[in-house]
Amino acid sequence: MSDISEDSVRHLAGLARIDLTNDEVTHLTAELSKIVDVVATVSAAATDDVPATSHPIPLTNVYRDDVVTDDVLTTEKALSGAPEHDGSRFKVSAILGEEQ
């Protein structure tokens, strides 16, 4: 059985910055418990002698040259999708707490 509780769902939602309603927390707790029970079966197959694969096609040392390209956006284009800006910078509401 999984250890998914309403509290852990709330904690995860906090980490993921999603302001879940109480109803959603209740639903997700039930659903995730079932899903986690199923997906947890992977640990049965994953023995110590098996290496992990993070990329399906192995490549290494994929680099680009240190050259500026035409991918650079104008400030206007950079800001074009912003919900709010001051003409050159993106605007956000006050930040809680201290800088990181």
């Binding site: 992977v42 640990s43 197959a45 994953a46 098996v50 290496p51 992990a52 694969t53 399906p56």
Partner: peptide, 15 residues
């Protein structure tokens, strides 16, 4: 390790 790590190992097995 138990979840993501194991899933990546399953990937190796399937390959």
């Amino acid at each position: 390790d138990a979840y993501y790590g194991s899933a990546q190992k399953v990937r190796t097995l399937i390959q």
